[in-house]
Design a protein around this nucleic acid. Structure first.
Lengths: 195, 195
DNA sequence: AGTTTAATGGCACGTCATGTCATCACAGTG
DNA sequence: CACTGTGATGACATGACGTGCCATTAAACT
């Protein structure tokens, strides 16, 4: 019996996903996941810091991807235009080709408050990496913060619309639509002059 | 020995806050909190769903306050102007008079990832109640979502600036400043026309 | 073949959180 | 004053989560 089955982490992920879908997240125990993957509980916690994290494995790549993209963009591109032009392509490359998987995951996450909290945390991590990218480009912190928030809001909203849509809609289209809606709101923000 | 000390919940809150500041959140156990409050562990979990929640007690009032404010505002006021005009006063009444307490709490929250996650969850709850308020006013869901996000982003940023500031700065001033910064960015969003 | 490295197994342990039942304080009633 | 009902608390058992520690084994390296 081979002890080191290739891809223990993958095994655990698949086992966990299957069990979560079958019997729910809260009703699934870590020993159950480990047993289905042919491993032990202790090994599970070596690959994932906690039971929730197994649903977010691979998301470490997202901040890295953000850093690369922002470093590649010419320094003279200002923050808002950078987001407006890069967010669509970025979303498409990172999430565009796995709508089904993201749908299954979202279905599970929506059933558990702890998982929703973790998802918010992941978005906050993404936001932080965007802020960091802007600061490294010389943007002041307040602007970096607000533009990163803008990016995360638009991305989240577009992802929700995309996952909720039925036809073969491209994610970049959803991003464009949300950006258009945001543009309309932005004009109202301007008109309302402050005292 | 009186068994029903008045205000068991308050006792637990104060004991928890003190212990968290003394030895940290993770290093404090629920039995310790209960013991200092003169109660048992089981009683702690009757008043708070989990160990983190003790730091967020009283925040249930915030969504209620949002509902009231949005219901009182005349129906003809459009979403964006509503936020622009009401957010400052709202923040002032809800948070304005307890900067010190919020500072202590923030100091604790910043040390623990689980607490940060819970704080994000609370902001998401606030966001949801704003969305609900807009939908009840007849706003379409996408607009309601985006404007609620705008409100939460501005509020969070302003709160951060306010808690970080040294002098006797009013929270409404911080909100106004963040709104001004956002207005500048909004103009850039408009200029950048989509394809 | 021997050595080193890294992943895993196995066990103990503390904490968190919940279900269950007994117990006690207090209010109301006669 | 005695009786009763309601609600908060105490006390105990239980299960799951997550971590520290060390032995074990596979695979790579020499």
């Amino acid at each position: 019996m081979a002890r080191w089955q290739a891809g223990a982490q993958d095994q655990l992920e698949q086992a966990a996903l299957a069990l979560f879908l079958e019997q729910g997240f809260a009703e699934t125990t870590v020993p159950q996941i480990a047993a289905r993957a042919g491993l032990t509980t202790r090994t599970f916690f070596r690959h994932f810091t906690d039971k929730r994290e197994v649903l977010f494995a691979g998301d470490e790549a997202v901040p890295t991807s953000v850093q690369q993209l922002m470093a590649q963009t010419p320094p003279e591109v200002r923050p808002v235009p950078l987001i407006l032009t890069q967010l669509g392509p970025f979303a498409e490359t990172v999430f565009g080709d796995r709508r089904d998987m993201l749908r299954r995951r979202h279905q599970i996450i929506s059933t558990d408050q702890g998982l929703r909290e973790r998802e918010l945390q992941k978005m906050a991590t993404l936001r932080a990496s965007i802020v960091d990218g802007f600061v490294q480009r010389g943007t002041d912190k307040l602007t970096a913060s607000l533009v990163a928030d803008l990016a995360v809001v638009v991305l989240s909203t577009a992802l929700a619309q995309w996952l909720d849509s039925v036809g073969p809609m491209p994610l970049s289209t959803a991003v464009a639509e949300v950006l258009a809606a945001f543009r309309r709101l932005a004009s109202e923000v301007e008109l309302q002059a402050g005292p």
